[in-house]
């Protein structure tokens, strides 16, 4: 039956319009979301990219029915999250940014419990748990309590938990935050496999390379708003190419900047106290060689010189003119919503 209001594009797996969420805080209130619009076509991956506190988790919590928005509407799998949350829950899987696995249950028991709570039936839940353990390379550890698992294993089990009922739509909230590089790559493989199988994925991340690798399109979120969206190529084009990073000797910052400006594709950024200059450049390693030559000719003593790919911080600087908050200062607008509940476990 088609409803009059809340028109949804036929191929949208996830659709949100004007989501607003306000949390009370000690100093008044915090607008965690300030009008977020999203559209994720079925079978595609949307990467929600932003620093801590940008509103990524709040968005996921609304779309997965854990929070109700103060304004705006959202449909998931064509179902209004406010009107029929239970039906939405039947179509989604959620894997959180800190693995919600039960540390005293074994890996198998964790998956069995989730299968039963999806009402798969005992035999089907057992079979599915076995399949997932196999798929996620957890067979050897399947019958050990998960408190003996490594961080990467827990994260895999948590992701497996989201897939128990083979939901058509998966939400991954910072699936690789805090993982070592190897576990991160392994998890990327798993997620890519899901996508090949046709699952729609909404994933949040603080890492540009992660969004770049996994997402068909990216929405950059800052302070509760989507400030840019597009494919990763489009965003990178907007961002400029690689960055040349130079550290110069005392008293040579200004000269260095003038030299570097001659080679740069955009504004040179200066960090005074570390005497480090950062400039977007085109041309890859040729730019590096040009820079060495130019600094040498100008008599600037270079202490350190290197190239790096644009980071989330560069994206933010480019789009907003301010830096992304450093990850260790997790005091963004989302903090009042989460520290109370989560702080205790740390």
């Amino acid at each position: 039956m088609s409803e009059g209001c809340g028109w949804v594009q036929p191929m949208s797996a996830i659709h949100a319009e004007g989501l607003v969420k306000v949390f009370p805080s000690r100093s008044g209130e915090v607008r965690a979301l300030d009008g977020v619009d999203l559209d994720v076509p079925a079978g595609t991956v949307l990467g929600l990219l932003g620093p801590n506190g940008a509103g990524k988790t709040t968005t996921v919590r609304i779309l997965t029915t854990l929070l109700t928005p103060d304004a705006g509407t959202a449909t998931v799998h064509g179902i209004d999250v406010a009107r029929d949350p239970q039906a939405v829950r039947r179509s989604i899987g959620l894997s959180g940014q800190y693995a919600a696995v039960d540390e005293y249950l074994t890996g198998r028991e964790n998956l069995l419990m989730i299968g039963r709570l999806y009402h798969l039936g005992g035999a089907a839940a057992r079979q599915r748990a076995g399949e997932l353990l196999e798929e996620f390379d957890l067979v050897d550890a399947a019958d050990r309590p998960t408190k003996t698992y490594s961080g990467g294993m827990r994260r895999r089990l948590d992701l497996a938990g989201a897939l128990v009922a083979r939901p058509p739509i998966i939400f991954l909230d910072e699936p690789t935050t805090g993982l070592d590089p190897r576990s991160r790559l392994a998890l990327w493989d798993v997620i890519e496999g899901l996508v090949r199988a046709g699952t729609t994925v909404l994933l949040t991340t603080q890492y540009l390379d992660e969004a770049d690798k996994l997402a068909d399109s990216i929405a950059v979120v800052d302070r509760g708003r989507v400030i840019a969206r597009g494919t990763s190529d489009a965003l990178k084009a907007q961002m400029g190419g690689e960055r040349l990073v130079v550290t110069v000797d005392h008293g040579q910052v200004e000269t260095g900047r003038a030299v570097l400006q001659g080679l740069a594709d955009g504004a040179v950024e200066v960090e005074e106290h570390t005497r480090t200059l950062v400039a977007p450049v085109a041309g890859g390693s040729t730019a590096l060689i040009d820079a060495v030559r130019a600094f040498d000719e100008a008599g600037v003593r270079v202490l350190d010189l290197g190239m790096r790919r644009p980071t989330l911080d560069d994206v933010f600087l480019q789009l907003t003119g301010h830096h992304a908050e450093p990850t260790d200062a997790a005091d963004g607008p989302e903090a009042p919503a989460t520290t109370g509940a989560r702080g205790a476990s740390r």
């Binding site: 919590r61 989604i92 800190y98 989730i114």
Partner: peptide, 18 residues
């Protein structure tokens, strides 16, 4: 109860059709 709440276990439960 407080322990489950702090660990995000309830988030998982509440995202399930249970």
């Amino acid at each position: 109860m407080a322990d489950d709440l702090s660990r995000g276990v309830f988030d998982r439960f509440r995202s399930l059709p249970m």
